[in-house]
């Protein structure tokens, strides 16, 4: 299972990177979103897969999967939401202000 997940992570990162390198703002946002999914998967998998029960003590079971990566990812998901929202708004704002969403045309020139 770990090998499969590692490959899935690799594919997500590849696609995400490719999208990040593309010229259109919306694609760049998609790319960053995909990469953050990949990273979440990476973190949870490094805690070990299917190594125990859900980290809930109330059900009278023993042997839990690692709860720490889960807590980390929970934080990451919510932050990621905020970042995605911000980047989205930033990109459409920049589109409205500059009239283009082409990154090659959005180059910052030093003598502006």
């Amino acid at each position: 299972m770990e090998i499969v997940i590692a490959i899935v992570i690799g594919i997500l990162v590849t696609i995400g990177t490719y999208l990040l390198l593309s010229r259109q703002l919306l694609r760049i946002v998609f790319g960053s979103s995909l990469i953050s999914h990949a990273v979440n998967l990476l973190i949870i998998t490094s805690g070990g897969l299917k190594k125990g029960n859900a980290p809930l003590l109330g059900e009278g079971k023993i042997g839990f999967t690692d709860a720490l990566p889960q807590a980390l990812i929970l934080t990451a998901i919510v932050i990621n939401f905020a970042v995605t929202a911000f980047v989205l708004v930033l990109s459409y704002r920049s589109f409205k202000a500059n009239g283009t969403d082409d990154m090659e045309k959005l180059r910052g020139n030093e003598h502006e």
């Binding site: 859900a54 809930l56 003590l57 109330g58 929970l74 919510v78």
Partner: peptide, 12 residues
């Protein structure tokens, strides 16, 4: 506090 859930999920 005891089951799946909490501030983040509830809030969202």
């Amino acid at each position: 506090h005891h089951n799946p859930g909490g501030g983040f999920i509830g809030g969202l």
